[in-house]
Nucleic acid binder design. Structure first.
Length: 599
RNA sequence: GCGCCCUUAGCUCAACCGGAUAGAGCACUCGCCUUCUAAGCGAGCGGUUGCAGGUUCGAGUCCUGCAGGGCGCGCCA
């Protein structure tokens, strides 16, 4: 059974078609004027324009055809020709019951499931994640969940930046600092020592903190000192040839980084199906370049080999994709192109979503065009879902008080500390075990961070204000958790008092009170919010829905006693509360937010 | 220089193919806990949607110009 908006659209579209007008004009939307109607159709206005008739006459004719529909309490013409629809309590009762009985809580699946791959834009090996990675993780995770819930087959790929010159630099820097490691690397490279065993023990002393400290130094030195740079390049080339010592040390870099990344991602409730990286497509690059050449796409230009991607009608001339540099090495975009080819072979995705900073828009446009030219994807299958930057309260990219980049792990810990503090202040979670309390504080912190991000449309930059996010009042993640937990509390109590137990709690819903009407209409809007979030890659539509649902429930909670009501009413309200909880938890889950049992 | 994005209430942000009276939260004022979790609910205050034109029955939304802010523009990733 579809949502009310779709049901009504169908009816009004049929009415338009019956009058010889285009059916699609009958599209129904939630009313802008809840004081006047539940739903509205603006089609008469558009129809009037097309056929040159008075919109109110058309609206009246449509209304005439709708009269007698038992789902509609009233059909009214208002203003210049709006058709206002008010639903009968019976229709709302039916819909509320359907949602309560539906495992999907009123949400539909897509007609044509696709194979979708979400690329989170790749943290780099050797660098801990910082706040800049927060949005990609949060938005990417939500999009992944939304697409999966709609029925697509979705894989998320963390996609490491784990290859290239930077790795050569780091290997050299670590060897300079640790003679024991340098010696072990040389022994492995020379084949004196077989891979594994002793060498690995020396490598185990390398930590992510070391790499994080050494990388900027090495990068600076590589710029200033040509000998140093040349050595790093030689190491890079040898690494790419799988020289055992370098490769083993590189593997250690990758491992320590992944452990740290997994810790941060886990704390955020983010996970991946794939931990692929740039290194995984290294072997594809040479054959790919040969193939591109054979297809006649490569052009020699200023010593480099490029693919031109300009098209007629471009407002500006996009630079070409630089496939092979004048020094013969593969570039950033080359790796991206090889990754597209790899994914085509491995998964044949119908859609690849790159959840990456908006600033890379031109880069992706260039790579995508090259991929289309090469036949590695069909036009439109590659999609850059860009997002704005997260700024500090000064409007500039977020920095710590000392002016440095805030590590993601530190940010999460700061938010957790604030959550603990607030829980204590509110006197919540007092008689809990320390483990449960920590679990709740973690969930509150994640909810605060994620909801603060996802309530904004991804494309715009927003101000990160820890004090505001952690104030936990109003339109915040913790508010949503609080509402969900409050419902759980009522349901628990009902069960404890004997009239909530399974069957009894699921008493048939009857919608009567205004707050019950509003709550049901809000529950019904889940499908619309989900569809919008899906179509526009816009989790904020779902965040908004979750918030409205919480508010509608809170109103219902304040105005309609549940446990004190007459048995029949009580059963109805318990079922309505249960459906609300289920949908709210689902919506939050799609945002990547988990709800504790109590708080 | 060229191109992209942004500018909405004091602050932070919404607004579904162009629709009625542009919505939330915070802040501020007031009311509501002997009843299911008051991190709550209700009411109030707050707007020339940066500016100037245009298209339209109708524009925050589309078009043109201007101002302010951010970002990107071939051998880093």
């Amino acid at each position: 059974m579809s949502d009310l908006k779709s049901q009504l659209s169908e009816a009004v579209e049929a009415a338009f078609a019956g009058l010889g007008l285009p059916a699609e004009l009958g599209r129904v939307t939630v009313s802008d004027r809840p004081d006047l109607a539940d739903f509205q159709s603006n089609g008469a206005l558009a129809a009037a324009k097309r056929v040159g008739k008075n919109p109110r006459e058309i609206a009246a004719a449509v209304a005439e055809r709708l009269s007698g529909d038992p789902r509609l309490a009233t059909v009214e013409i208002a203003g210049p020709g709006f058709i206002n629809l008010k639903l009968s309590d019976a229709a709302l009762t039916d819909r509320a019951r359907a949602i309560a009985a539906d495992p999907r809580l009123g949400a539909e699946t897509v007609a044509q499931p696709r194979r979708v791959l979400v690329d989170y834009g790749g943290p780099n090996v050797a660098k801990p994640m910082h706040v800049g990675h927060l949005r990609a993780s949060i938005i990417g995770e939500s999009i992944k969940r939304i697409y999966r819930f709609r029925g697509d087959a979705v894989k998320g790929d963390a996609h490491f930046g784990d290859w290239g010159y930077q790795m050569g630099l780091l290997i050299g820097a670590v060897m300079d600092e640790h003679p024991a490691i340098a010696a072990a690397v040389e022994r492995l490279n020379a084949g004196i020592e077989p891979p594994g065993a002793a060498g690995a023990a020396a490598f185990n002393t390398v930590t992510l903190a070391d790499l994080d400290r050494l990388y900027p130094e090495a990068a600076a030195k590589g710029k200033a000192d040509t000998d140093y740079r040349d050595r790093a390049r030689r190491i890079t080339a040898a690494l790419q040839d799988r020289k055992p010592g370098y490769h083993a040390l590189w593997q250690r870099f990758r491992d320590v980084t992944q452990v740290a990344l997994e810790r941060d991602f886990h704390a955020l409730g983010v996970d991946f199906d794939l931990w692929k990286g740039e290194s995984d497509v290294e072997d594809l690059i040479d054959p790919m370049v040969a193939e591109l050449d054979a297809k006649g796409l490569l052009v020699d230009d200023q010593g480099a080999r490029i693919i031109r991607v300009v098209r007629d009608g471009d407002k500006k001339e996009l630079p070409p994709l630089l496939v092979v540099s004048s020094e013969g090495s593969a570039m950033y975009g080359t790796t991206d192109l090889a990754t597209i080819l790899d994914r085509k072979r491995e998964f044949a995705p119908n859609l690849v979503i790159y959840c990456v900073d908006q600033r890379q828009a031109d880069h992706f446009e260039i790579v995508f065009r090259a991929a289309y030219l090469a036949g590695y994807a069909l036009e439109g299958e590659l999609n850059h879902v860009g997002f704005g930057t997260m700024n500090g309260t000064d409007g500039k990219p977020f920095k710590t008080r000392e002016g440095g980049v805030l590590k993601l792990n530190d940010m999460i810990e700061m938010t957790r500390a604030k959550a603990r503090e607030r829980l204590h202040e509110a006197g919540l979670g007092e008689n809990l075990t320390p483990e449960d309390f920590e679990d709740i504080a973690g969930k509150v912190a994640v909810a605060a961070l994620k909801f603060a991000d996802l309530q904004n449309f991804r494309g715009t930059s927003y101000v990160f204000d820890l004090d505001r996010f952690t104030s936990f009042e109003g339109k915040t993640g913790p508010y949503l958790l609080y509402q969900a937990v409050r419902i759980k509390s009522v349901l628990r109590r009902a069960a404890a008092e004997g009239f909530g137990a399974e069957g009894a709690a699921a008493g048939p819903i009857t919608v009567a009170e205004p707050a019950e009407r509003e709550l049901t209409l809000t529950l019904d809007a889940f499908e619309t919010a989900l569809a919008e979030a899906y179509d526009r890659y816009a989790p904020n539509a779902l965040a908004e829905h979750a918030y409205r649902l919480s508010q509608a429930f809170s109103k219902f909670y304040a105005g309609c006693p549940i446990l004190q009501a007459e048995p029949q009413v009580r059963a109805s309200r318990l079922a309505l509360a249960g459906a609300t909880l289920a949908q709210l938890e689902r919506a939050l889950d799609l945002l990547g937010i988990a709800v504790p049992e109590r708080m």
